[in-house]
Structure formats: C-alpha cells, structure tokens
C-alpha cells in the first residue's frame, strides 16, 4: 500500500516524508488496532447487557440461592478496583483452563501443577500451544480481556438494571395486573418498556466508562492502540528508516482526540435514545408542550 515515491525514505522531505512515514506497515498495524478497540466494544456491550439482565433477574428471583448469587456477584465486583479485576480474571481464567487441559491431556504426569510459586503444566496443556501463531496468542489474550470486561461491567449493568426495574412506579404495574395481565405480560408490556427510562442514564454512563476503560487491553498484553502509540511514538535513531525524536506526545494526543470523539458521539447517541425511551413524552425535545408530571399529585 506504500506510495511509489517512498522507495528511499532518506531522500524524502516535508509532507512526502510524512505521508510515507504514516503508511509504514507498522503504522498500518496501528490503524488496525483501532478495530481491536471497536471489536472489544462491539462484543462486550451486548454481553454486558445480557449479563446485566441476568444479574438483575437473579437479584429479583424468588429463589433464594439465585438471589444470593445475584447479590454476591454485583456487590463483590463493585467492591473491587477495576484494574485489579482486569489483572486477576485473565490470569485466573488462563490458569483454570490450562489446569483443566493438563488434567485431561497429560493424565500420566503426577508432579503437582503448583510447585512452590510456579504454575507448571505439560506442553500440550499450554493455552495457546507453544507452536501457535502470534495471532492466536493475540486472540486468546483478547478473548480473556472480553471476558474480564464483561464480568466487571455486567455487574455494574446488573445494578443499574435492577435499580431501574425497582424504580418503575408500582401503580403502573398494579394497573396492568388489575386489567388481567399475567405476570409475564405485565413484565413485557409495562415493566420492561418503562424500565429503560430509568436505566438509560446509568447505562449510558456505563458505556462511557467502558469506552474509557478500553486502554486496559494494553495492560493485558493485547496490542491495542496504546501499545502502538507507545511503540511508534518512541524516539527512532538513524538506525531506523524513518528516524524521529520522541513523538509520543503527538501519538497520545491523537488517542486523546480519538476517545473524545468517540465519547462525544456516544453522548449524542444516548441523548437520542433517552429521548426515544422517555416515559414523559412532554419532556422530550420532540415536543414543544410544557413539562407536566406523570400522574399529578404523586
């Protein structure tokens, strides 16, 4: 994809130099690493929403152990710093999977897996296996990251959704029952649609935090945009094709602009969504009628 005139970088000047510099294979890896961020968001967001619903339903369940599970899940994750969770979950999952594979694939090895502070499994149990391509390693790391993100943010979403379900006025649900609706009809026709009004501010907030948490991928060893910004921005001596001083400032500035843009767009999107799901239509921008309270006198 590199341009014709880029053949000998040492002869280039000005914008020609810059255009060639910005199209080096490493830079192309940098650009594709933005896709990693989007992929993480695209996969994590729906999973988080699902986990959030599951957690909220568990907390509301009439079955006590399920209720316990829901409460423990949400309060435990809420009480732990995110960064620690992101460091803990991938390592724990990694070891869990390798331990299981070790037991299945190498039943003959009797030596304990935990030897002092070492975690030793047979070669066949390694995840990914030692002869796997680099992209498999990346994918494995990415998958662990997705799981860690989903667990953490799922707990927050569960809290938000649980709170939103509680916030729907009781009389709205009672009225539905009074008109003969079954429990599931009440839930589908009234409870769920009205829940969004109360959940959206929290969920939009959560989305922003999720977007801003994506650089944690770097912490998990995934080659994300932060990794590449550091790599490419660092000073390059004349040993390199395109030598330059420490430009990390500019690279990080670019990331800053990227995240600002992303959160700004998200904000606009959620404002629209909130408008759409607003229970009090008179408050939405689509209407010019003055606001009134739902159910006067409440």
């Amino acid at each position: 994809m590199s341009l014709q005139y880029c053949a000998d970088p040492s002869l280039l000047h000005g914008w020609q130099w810059l255009s060639c510099y910005l199209l080096t294979p490493k830079h192309q890896l940098f650009y594709t690493s933005f896709l990693v961020v989007f992929a993480l968001l695209a996969i994590t967001a729906p999973v988080v929403l699902l986990l959030g619903f599951a957690g909220a339903m568990a907390k509301r369940s009439s079955f006590l152990p399920l209720r316990w599970f829901g409460s423990i899940y949400t309060s435990m994750v809420r009480g732990v710093p995110d960064v620690i969770f992101f460091l803990f979950v991938p390592i724990a999952l990694d070891q869990l999977v390798e331990y299981a594979r070790h037991k299945i694939k190498c039943p003959d090895i009797t030596a304990p897996v935990y030897q002092g502070s070492d975690f030793i499994v047979c070669a066949a149990a390694k995840m990914p296996t030692s002869n796997a391509d680099a992209w498999v390693h990346q994918l494995w790391g990415f998958s662990l990251a997705v799981i860690a993100f989903s667990i953490v943010f799922g707990a927050f979403a569960a809290n938000t959704i649980h709170g939103a379900l509680q916030a729907v006025p009781h009389n709205q649900l009672e009225t539905a029952r009074a008109y003969g609706m079954s429990d599931s009809q009440v839930f589908r026709r009234v409870h769920l649609p009205q829940m969004w009004t109360y959940a959206l501010p929290g969920l939009s907030n959560l989305w922003m935090i999720l977007v801003k948490a994506t650089p944690l991928l770097f912490l998990l060893g995934v080659e994300d945009i932060v990794y590449w910004a550091r790599e490419l921005g660092g000073a390059k001596t004349s040993y390199f094709e395109y030598p330059h001083p420490d430009w990390r400032l500019w690279y990080f500035l670019a990331l800053l602009v990227f995240y600002l843009l992303l959160t700004w767009l998200s904000g606009k999107f959620f404002a629209r969504l909130t408008d759409k799901f607003s229970v009090d239509k008179s408050r939405s921008k689509a209407n010019s009628i003055k606001p009134t309270l739902i159910g006067i006198g409440r």
Binding site: T175, I294, G295, R298
Partner: peptide, 20 residues
C-alpha cells in the same frame, strides 16, 4: 382471576395511565 379482573375494570384515583 383473569376472568374477574377483565370483567371488573378499575378506575384509579391517580388515573394510572401507562406512561409509555
């Protein structure tokens, strides 16, 4: 129960129209 409730429709003090 459903038979009864659909046949005894209720009007509430606070109207309780479904807001959405």
């Amino acid at each position: 129960l459903q038979q009864m409730r659909t046949n005894l429709s209720m009007v509430f003090q606070q109207f309780n129209l479904w807001a959405h």
